[in-house]
Amino acid sequence: MDREELLSATPEDSGEPKKQESPLLSLEKDLEFYADAIKEVAIEIMVEGISAHPIFIAHQHEVKLGEIILNREELNTDWTIQASTLEEFVEKGIINKEKKEQFLKVYKKPENFMCVFVIVPEGANFIYYPYKKGKS
């Protein structure tokens, strides 16, 4: 699922009175703010040979997966970001071993996109968020 799909369902489109703003709007703002730091960690994970497939977890609660790299309480933002890898996701059973190849087919270049596993009360899903253009 791309971020456009996640962010496109807005109450304004339905003609109904505006309800609570989607938490995904605040996620997009935080990912924009965090982009350089996330990209730096992704490159570090790849260069150090930890994994060729970094995955970042965005959440607002406590998650026992990966390591915290950006804490929402310390940074006064809405989302905490943790760094993980495809290997950890497979090891913990979040990505089924049989589905690993299928996942890799849709996994976007980590030099251009951050792979984010977004956890919200309704469930969790992967999104690919592009790094800003013109930034290295």
Rank of each mutant, 00 (worst) to 15 (best):
A83C: 12
S84V: 08
T85V: 07
C115K: 02
K105D: 11
T85R: 00
F103W: 07
I94P: 10
A83V: 11
K108H: 09
F117N: 11
I81E: 09
D78N: 12
E91Q: 10
I119W: 00
V90M: 00
T85P: 00
T80C: 08
K92G: 05
P121K: 12
K97R: 14
K92L: 09
Y107L: 09
Q102E: 15
S84A: 10
T85F: 05
F103E: 07
E111Q: 11
N96F: 06
E91V: 11
I94W: 09
C115H: 10
P121Y: 04
A124R: 05
V120R: 11
K105S: 10
F89G: 03
K108V: 10
E98L: 15
K92S: 05
W79C: 02
E87P: 07
N96V: 10
W79T: 09
E88L: 13
Q102H: 15
K100T: 08
F89T: 02
K109I: 15
E87W: 03
G93E: 08
G123S: 07
Q82N: 13
I81V: 10
N112Q: 14
I95D: 08
V116R: 05
K108I: 08
P110Q: 01
E111L: 14
I81T: 05
V116T: 06
A83F: 05
K97Q: 11
K100W: 03
Y107F: 12
F113E: 04
K97I: 13
K108L: 12
E122Q: 13
E98M: 15
E122M: 08
I95F: 04
W79D: 02
L104D: 01
G123V: 04
F113H: 10
L86C: 02
V90E: 00
G93N: 04
K109A: 14
P121Q: 12
V106C: 04
K92D: 10
V118D: 03
I81Q: 03
F103R: 03
T77E: 03
F103N: 04
L86I: 01
C115T: 15
Q82I: 07
E111W: 06
E88K: 11
E98T: 08
L104F: 02
E87D: 14
V118S: 02
T77G: 03
C115W: 01
T80E: 10
Q102S: 15
I95V: 14
E98H: 12
E98I: 13
E111K: 11
V120F: 07
E122L: 10
T85H: 06
T80R: 07
K105I: 13
G93L: 04
K92Y: 11
T80V: 13
P121T: 10
G123I: 09
Y107P: 07
E101W: 08
W79R: 00
V116E: 00
A124V: 05
T80I: 06
G123A: 05
N112G: 15
V118C: 05
E122S: 12
G93V: 09
F113I: 12
K92I: 13
G123M: 02
W79L: 12
K99W: 04
C115A: 14
Q102A: 15
I119F: 01
E91G: 03
L104I: 11
F103K: 02
K99P: 01
S84T: 11
